[in-house]
Design a protein around this nucleic acid. Structure first.
Lengths: 343, 343
DNA sequence: AGCGGTATTCAAAGCGCTTTGGAAACTTTG
DNA sequence: CAAAGTTTCCAAAGCGCTTTGAATACCGCT
């Protein structure tokens, strides 16, 4: 059933039917009801492509996911973030189009999306410190919101980010207040902006107390379980291992826990650990009593907010960039305790 | 730059330019080259919506992700599966459109996608035993491939699935060959088809040796870390705990490991564990020496295959359903060993 | 009755592409 | 050299919708 058929069936013009359905005022209340009823009855849904062609809008938001051939890992928070954005899109009648491309084709993918008019805007994931995509999208003039920030970019652009700096500074201070001095960091790749900010936060907190990050206590990499395990094993083998460790993801923290257990030590007693917790559905960090002390910020919620911001910008035709900084909670669990005597 | 502008610029009709670009034979080789060159130069990309309107195709595949309000969890394998399908779509010029909907709106979401013509086909995730979506899609006549199967559906339909039955039967036999008799199962929700098959596989393997699954050794639920932990804690508290446990996901297995460690026991010595391993990028089960003995089958690969099957069906207009059954590998890691004496 | 104004409806153009049904130019053939 | 193919190109219709510009119907007033 298309518009034409529906309008013939009603004995009305396509114009009137279209207007009735889209809520334009210049249509008689009676006719509108008649049209609505018929549409419901025949389960009429306007063809997306035709509507898009006519309006110049696509009612879709793009997400481009680069996969590297080297370390072809899909970010584990991706699913939750997408769930957050997706909810918002559905609620507002938008589709979400995902494009999985080799990272070498990423720029082309953005350009294509823009030229082909597949989407009305995009969300940028996991920005690097000097992320080329921001510049590119500004040039293209396509509406976008970045999930995260890019420290090295000076032009204004829209973003939603969690305050990684304050979160990790608080975490570091929390550990130091417990007496810890030898604090390790197992971070994401520090070419990623969030990881860079977390490192700087630790640096700053340590510096405030006249300390510095021991290079042998500093790891970065893809945030896998194995990274956490191997880093911790290496540190525990040293003469003076850290007494506390800051970790960038729950998955990696689980690897650290494994290494600690294997060494016959106990988390929260021999070694303290604070991890960042994205509040993923399947990795619930305990409701009543958290496993890990953590800086927690729901990535799903960030997804919702980023999507809302973008849709709003698109619909109001906003031209000035917006920003939203989310604060993480510091939740205290069983993985932290006072520094052991002799530590 | 659109077709009209490009053709005017070349002094040709839209017809010829369109044909040249789409590889139709009735165009002079010289002209074709000239057109191609101009298109490249001006970075021409045909408008998706216009092309779709004209051809009746959308060059997009849909995935509908229901989120429940109760347990609003995003399946952790989702990201990897999507990565697999997405790769395939990109390589073939298709887009992927994701729709995140409340589970109560799921049927409506499929109907809408179909009527509005947003996609040329869909992939169905995580089928239940009697999944209404299969019937629905057959009625709508929309091409689809199911990732998994639905035991209670008799009509033929297309699917890609891993052989859960043979995988878990092998795993159970492996344990029994090591002398284990008290084997527990921590499964996904058994309304899900894969979980149901895994349970039946364990039942069958036990029955073959005159044994049966102890109801107090049988757990099912959303496959979180906490599920594994709590189930294991409960079993370890009993008079005669299991000596081995079969687990449906790595995440859950990690929870089991935690419980085992907390009890001061050792995996692979006091308790044996076999898990299913979807070979997720961020949860690498060790390259050289696997942490867990596991039935391994890459969900990303399954995604690729499902997508290839669907695209192929769409492009050939195939009407007869296809199926593909993938066998999981049984890889032996450090989490299994002979039954302890006295077990 | 006739007028301006408002409410309601419609025909037709246009969005950017593909594709049908010719037409023109060029070759080959009897 | 005319007839019959072949190549190569084009004008125009159509995909399903929105929207412009115009027509018609109806209203209260003078």
């Amino acid at each position: 059933m298309n518009l034409k058929q529906l309008s013939e069936l009603l004995g009305l013009s396509q114009t009137t039917v279209s207007r009735a359905l889209n809520g334009y005022p210049e249509v008689n209340q009676k006719t509108r009801e008649r049209v609505m009823e018929a549409a419901r009855l025949h389960n009429y849904r306007p063809n997306t492509r035709a509507k898009g062609l006519a309006t110049g809008r696509s009612m879709a938001i793009g997400h481009i996911i680069p996969v590297s051939t080297k370390h072809e890992m899909v970010n584990p928070v991706f699913g939750d973030f997408i769930a957050g954005t997706g909810e918002t899109y559905s609620r507002n009648g938008y589709d979400m189009v995902l494009s999985v491309v080799a990272d070498s084709d990423e720029e082309k993918a953005y350009r294509d999306m823009h030229r082909r008019g597949t989407v009305d805007g995009v969300i940028v994931h996991g920005p690097h410190m000097d992320d080329f995509r921001i510049q590119l999208l500004l040039e293209l003039g396509m509406p976008f919101v970045v999930h995260g920030r890019a420290s090295d970019i000076s032009q204004p652009y829209s973003w939603v980010d969690v305050n990684n700096f304050s979160a990790f500074r608080r975490a570091a201070n929390f550990l130091m207040d417990l007496g810890h001095r030898r604090i390790a960091l197992i971070n994401g790749l520090e070419t990623m902006d969030f990881a860079y900010r977390r490192r700087r936060a630790l640096d700053a907190a340590l510096a405030d107390r006249g300390l510095a990050l021991d290079p042998s206590f500093h790891f970065q990499g893809e945030m896998t379980e194995v990274l956490g395990h191997d880093a911790m094993v290496a540190m525990l083998a040293s003469d003076a291992p850290p007494t506390a460790v800051l970790v960038s993801s729950m998955i990696t923290a689980i690897g650290v826990r494994r290494a600690v257990h294997e060494a016959g030590l106990k988390l929260g007693k021999d070694i303290s650990l604070i991890t960042h917790d994205d509040d993923l559905g399947y990795l619930n960090n305990g409701i009543d009593e958290p496993l890990f002390t953590a800086t927690r910020s729901s990535v799903r919620d960030a997804g919702r907010r980023a999507a809302e911001m973008l849709l709003n910008m698109i619909e109001t035709g906003a031209t000035v960039p917006r920003t939203e900084l989310l604060e993480a909670d510091l939740i205290v669990g069983r993985s932290t305790g006072p520094v052991p005597s002799g530590g």
